[in-house]
Simulated scan of single mutants.
Amino acid sequence: MSNRKDQDGKQAARERIRAERERQKKKDRLRRQLVVAVSVVGVLAVAGGIGFAVVKANEPTGWEAAKEAKLVTPAHTQGKNGTEILLGDKNAKETLEVFEDVRCPACAAFEQSAGKELLKDLGQGRFKVRYTMYTFIDGMSGGEGSKKALSALGAALNVGPDAFLKYKSALYSTKYHPDEREDLYAKDSELLKVAADVPELKGNKAFETAVKSGTYNRWAMEMTALFGRKGVRGTPTFMHGDKKLVLPEIPQQQITQEQYDQLAQANFRKMIDKEFGPAKNGGPGGGKGIAPGEKDPTAGK
């Protein structure tokens, strides 16, 4: 009887041990499953983080990103992507095309000497002027001053044609225009300092915000894409229709700045008179920009 009780006790003990072992196995399996699950989540999180980092690293930045930004075109523009800047009296029958790059030293020399002659003809309604602004010097000399200045010019044009013309003249002026090797116009602070000399732009918060935030950067890239239009790859260049106008050269001689300016003005007048005929006195004021719906006679060329 005692032996049977002993056997039953041993059997019960073995059952308890076996049950305990099963419970421990289940706990171990559950623990391993949790560890694996957590590890998978961790791996996925890391992989996701790496993937996100790779995507971010491959996203375009700077002016490459500007190409994909939302296009905002300045007022007083027309044509595809707002790349036609046509200014002047809408009744003027002729259109002079002017190709410039803001960093271009030759453009600065022209603007500082004969630029006022061009604006005089524009103001008197002798012809409209279509400006095609290039930025190729950024690529040649490095930097981004041409593109930044062009974007700022877009902000000025949005204020008005007069603001655009005055700001462009100021950017080219002897007071501000830097050596082309110095990328000074890449700085917002410098662009705004120049703008302070333009009454329409001084203290203009909308203009300042547009410059700082790059509102017209995408538009500047659309303008940049016009490089080579009509075969023009150098600045300044002047065209009437498909005809490239030739600006007489100033003889290489020792002269004063005043004498140089006088010769430059005379040469520009000679070129314009030869192409458009003698100037007529009077005429309506210019700078009003293209009228809504009016077609640019040079469009598509």
Rank of each mutant, 00 (worst) to 15 (best):
P248D: 10
I250L: 09
V55S: 08
P60M: 04
M223W: 01
E97W: 07
M140W: 09
I85K: 02
A196G: 14
K205H: 08
N204F: 04
F99K: 07
L96P: 07
N3Q: 11
K193P: 02
N267A: 09
L118H: 09
K301W: 02
G9V: 00
W63Y: 09
A106C: 03
A170Q: 13
V43P: 04
F164C: 09
P74Y: 03
I85Q: 02
C104R: 03
G300A: 09
E190L: 03
A155I: 05
D183P: 05
G241F: 05
G228T: 06
R29P: 00
Q112E: 10
D183T: 02
T237L: 06
F127Q: 00
H76M: 00
Q253M: 10
R103A: 05
A75S: 13
G82F: 00
N58V: 12
R218G: 01
K70W: 01
K212R: 15
K93H: 01
L153C: 04
L184A: 13
R218T: 13
S169L: 08
H240N: 11
N204I: 06
F268I: 08
E111F: 05
N281F: 09
G9R: 13
D296R: 00
K25Y: 11
D101K: 08
I272H: 03
A53H: 12
K25I: 14
S169T: 15
T209N: 14
Q257I: 10
D261Y: 10
N281M: 08
I85D: 02
I17G: 00
Q262G: 13
K27W: 11
A45L: 15
S2C: 00
D8K: 12
F207L: 01
A163K: 05
H177P: 00
I85M: 08
Q11E: 13
R229I: 13
I85H: 04
Q253L: 04
A152F: 02
E20T: 11
K26Y: 02
N267V: 09
L157R: 00
K147P: 01
E97R: 14
A13F: 10
E100S: 12
K25G: 02
L71H: 08
Q257S: 15
R23P: 06
A53I: 07
T298G: 11
D89R: 09
